[in-house]
Design a protein around this nucleic acid. Sequence first.
DNA 1: CTCATAAACTTAACACCGTTAAATAACTTT
DNA 2: AAAGTTATTTAACGGTGTTAAGTTTATGAG
Lengths: 212, 212
Amino acid sequence: MGVIERRERERKAVRKKILDAARELFVAEGYDAVTMRRIAETIEYSPTAIYFHFKDKETLIRELCREDSVSLAKAFHVIAKEPDPLERLKKIATAYVDFGIKHPNSYRLMFMTQSKLNQDDLVHMGHGKLEEDGYAFLVATMSEAISKKLLREDLQDPDLVAQAFWAAGHGVVALHLAKHGDPWVDWRPLQDTATLITEAMINGLQRKDFQP
Amino acid sequence: MGVIERRERERKAVRKKILDAARELFVAEGYDAVTMRRIAETIEYSPTAIYFHFKDKETLIRELCREDSVSLAKAFHVIAKEPDPLERLKKIATAYVDFGIKHPNSYRLMFMTQSKLNQDDLVHMGHGKLEEDGYAFLVATMSEAISKKLLREDLQDPDLVAQAFWAAGHGVVALHLAKHGDPWVDWRPLQDTATLITEAMINGLQRKDFQP
DNA sequence: CTCATAAACTTAACACCGTTAAATAACTTT
DNA sequence: AAAGTTATTTAACGGTGTTAAGTTTATGAG
């Protein structure tokens, strides 16, 4: 039946219409500031129409977030080809920071808000969320760096080192997204800070003659 | 008149009563999850009574936050006596992380949410908020480290280095507060990560023979 | 062709939130 | 005792996400 396909296509079109309108508003004003009513208004639907296509506001936002995070996944996919683990680390950090700047709302949602760990999530686990893949990629890179003896001899725990490295990258982005407006700090360009912290970390982690 | 003093004392007592109840609820459930109505309920007042003592919910929360942040200020005050700048940096990082763990809600409010930069804040500026003092302390320490030639020769901008170092510390805390519940990361003890990132940063920043 | 059925939507409404306006009780001052 | 200030309550407003119930519209069956 061609009619059932047409319906599905129309439903998808409306879905996209909602997502596009929501995206534009969210990007401009942030997730919390935009109401369901305003999204409905811009597409000239009633507020409740959205709930036919999306379970609730969070689901809608997660969908946008998912779309955004594809760019990070793609970047990581390219970076995976880099043979040198330390060089790969630098590129990972760069891509990660870029993602945070390009998609601040999604970044905030993914990395700056505590995800409610309800039972549903625990059930649906193992599906390979993008954050999970990204972290696994970082750990794998760190593992390779360790096995190739590129890091200090006392650093044998890939998870520990990966978490420290992640924290460094996250710190730059998170601080920027949250506090860059504050005038009591003479902020340096984000790229400069990101480059410095990445270099300093790799430098500090790979050094051989470490003194406590 | 002794009566006016008594009134003031009673008013302060009610104020404290509200703050104590609010603190307990907030600590247990987070700032957003606790409503004004519930705070009022626990002290057996009507919800609107709170508004006689505090302008609004945010003011109340800021007051709690201010109280919390005193502990960080005190810690920094003690640390200021440490003569070695690099050692001071380590202690600053430790105190900062400790603060984040001890007062997660206040930390989130102070460092993980964008402060609305309205005109009022710009007017009331220069009052020396605690965050401001803390950052100034960090920059001063970094400045001293630079002038004592403890850092790499190419690092001459105290603000840049301070921001990178701050980002490192912030990254550890922020990641912990936001994502520690996520089960797809095999989290290492926060203290281990904090120690590693601090050492790695100082190590990476102070090294002389830096290769790009 | 008519009628039932399902999908896509709208209208009305609920429960909750922070907050304000108006009424009220309690206590001082005159 | 009257007037007035202070602290509190009751009632209500405007806003939010969301659900329930009704309404249109197009399709499929007899």
